[in-house]
Every structure is written in C-alpha cells, then in structure tokens.
C-alpha cells in the first residue's frame, strides 16, 4: 500500500511538474516580444492559406491577406523589412513542400500585406530578395535570374545554375547564393555559389534542404536528415543544423525525435532561430503546416523530448526553452516596425 501511495504521489508530482509553467519560457517570451514581427502562412478560418503577422511572442496576430478565393504561402520580408514577397495559388491548390517555389504567382506587397502586385502564374520561380530589396533572384531550368522588383525585367544575364534546383537565397552581403543542388552524383546537397564568378562549393551533402543565411553571410542554417538513424524504421527525423558557407564546422542546432524540423531562419541579429516542427516529413505544407518555434542561438544545440538516439550522439545539449508560436509554415522574421494595414 505504501508503495502504491508513493507511486501515485510520484505520478501526480510528475504531472504537476509537466503542467507547471516554465519561467525560462516567460523570460524568452518577454525578451523577444518587441523584436519586430514574424510573418508566416497558416490556415485561416475559411480553410484557405493566408498570411499572418505576429509579434515574436505570438501576440498581436493578424491576418494580412484574408483572401478566401486563393491560397497564400511562403512569405519573406525584404532585408529592410518594408516589403514582402510570397506566392499566391488558386484556391484549393495543395502546397507541395518540395515544389512550392514553382507553384502559383509571385506577389510583392508592402510588409503589412497592402498593395499586393501579382505576376503571371508560374513566373519567377523560387523568388527571393537581393540584399538591397530592389531585385528578386529567381531560379528556373535556364539558370539564375535577377529581376527588377517593379518591372520584373531581367537586370543582368542569367547565371548557370550548375545543378541547383530549389530554395535559392542570396546572402545579406550579396556575395553568395545558397541553394539545394545535385553535386557529385548526390542530390539534396546544400551548396554555396559565388554570385559573381559562379564558383561553387558543397556545404553539406546527403538529405539536406531549406538553407538560409545567417546575418554574417558566412554561415548557413539548413535542415538535414543524417544517415544512420535507426528510429522511424531507419528513415530518421530531420534536424536543424548550421554549417559554414565554405563547408565544415557542421553543428546541430535543434532536434527532436518524433518531429521533422524545417523552415529554419535566423533572426536579423543572429540571436534567435525560428523553425517549424511536424510529425510528418515535409513540414506539413500539404496540410496545415507545423508548430512554429523560437529558440535562442545561445541555447543551441537543444534537443527536445526523450530523443534517446539523438542525445547519445549529442551529449552536450543545452535543452534551452523553446517558445511555441502555434501552427504555420515557412515563418520569417524582421526587426523592422510594421504599421497597421
């Protein structure tokens, strides 16, 4: 009987501990609350994908597209935070986690979603911003294109894409591109390309994607599903990693067995990382997205959950607080202030 009581006491203690608010989370929330805005795609009440703005603590959430007759996704702030680019798809289109950059039309709008200007359907695939925000960089079979933001005309000759096939992003200093490429017979290799000479190097090979730049233009954040994982029937789970642009210095940022981590983006000052996690591979783009989260860079590597296999590989985990922002897809962060629509 004594043993039973102590088990019950232990279980109830565990329950209280699990339900207890984590003061570290409150501190993180307070720390990021006034640091600009997050934009992301999410299902709205009418069931379609719309774009939402919220403060980094999840407050002040508002729908900035509100279009029941179309789907909007994959927003990115311009480097100065004054504009947004995103893709608009016909209502009912399933967003393909692997193909979204080819889908629908490129729309450029003010950062609060006002004054949206849409291009032709299918044009300007995989569009992202140039460092000054006056141009957009695109990727198609013919190569890498630089288009004027307003006219959408090419401002220079296209560069050879050299096997890059998706998720192309220009570094903040304009010196580099990063993207996903076929290199050395291996697909899903994240590469860095010199934006002037076209010289290219592999950054990380085997099952990597969604690369993006750190503010210093020297490091890249990416999703990676390393080989040799036994869990999930040997398929493993995708984790968030950082790698030097020149290659090497690979380091885990965040992992959680049971969840695939995608959509990694670094805050404008490099102090935080933003990502989404989903039990389904592909970041939940085909459904309602994943759970968006914020983590301090100083708290990396962090491993959440039991994650026995991962913890064995990375014993130095810091297990920092992870702030949840709710469901969404491809979140992006600016420290600029954005007024009302």
């Amino acid at each position: 009987m004594k043993r039973l009581i102590s088990i019950l006491v232990f279980i109830s203690g565990m329950h209280v501990a699990a339900a207890a608010p984590d003061p570290r989370l409150d501190a993180l929330k307070a720390e990021v609350a006034a640091k600009g805005w997050i934009v992301y795609g999410a299902r709205s009440d009418n069931g379609t994908w719309d774009l939402f703005l919220s403060r980094p603590d999840g407050s002040a959430r508002r729908n900035i597209t509100n279009t029941p007759d179309s789907e909007e996704a994959a927003p990115r702030f311009s480097p100065d935070g004054s504009r947004l680019l995103f893709r608009r798809l016909p209502k009912g289109t399933t967003i393909d986690h692997d193909r979204w950059g080819f889908q629908g039309a490129l729309v450029i709008a003010n950062a609060d979603g006002s004054n949206p200007v849409a291009g032709e359907d299918g044009a300007a695939p995989w569009a992202s911003w140039s460092p000054d925000g006056k141009q957009v960089v695109c990727l198609d079979k013919q190569g890498i294109h630089m288009l004027d933001r307003e006219t959408r005309n090419e401002v220079r000759d296209p560069m050879k894409r050299q096997g890059i096939y998706q998720q192309l992003f220009c570094s903040p200093d304009g010196q580099w591109f990063c993207g996903v490429a076929n290199v050395g017979g291996e697909s899903w290799t994240v590469v860095r390309m010199n934006a002037k000479t076209g010289e290219m190097n592999a950054v990380r090979s085997f099952q990597n994607c969604t690369p993006d730049w750190f503010p210093d233009s020297q490091q890249i954040i990416l999703s990676s599903r390393p080989a040799g994982q036994k869990i999930n029937d040997g398929y493993g789970y995708t984790q968030l990693w950082a790698v030097d642009g020149a290659g090497g210095n690979d380091r885990l940022l965040y992992g959680e067995e049971g969840f695939h981590i995608y959509g990694g983006a670094v805050s404008p000052d490099g102090a935080y990382i933003l990502f989404s996690k989903s039990p389904q591979d592909g970041s939940g783009a085909e459904n309602a997205g994943g759970e968006m989260c914020i983590l301090r860079m100083a708290d990396t590597p962090t491993i959440a959950g039991e994650s026995a296999e991962l913890r064995q590989l990375h014993p130095a985990t810091k297990d920092g607080p992870v702030l949840s922002l709710g469901q969404g897809w491809e979140p992006h962060w600016t420290y600029a202030e954005i007024g009302a629509k």
Partner: peptide
C-alpha cells in the same frame, strides 16, 4: 538531363 529536369538526380556514375 540538367536542362530537362529540376529536381534531385541520383547518379552513381558521376565519378
């Protein structure tokens, strides 16, 4: 193939 297909290409003959 590179000019025809934009996606992952597994080429074990690359070397």
């Amino acid at each position: 193939i590179d000019e025809c297909f934009m996606g992952g290409i597994i080429n074990k003959y690359h070397e």
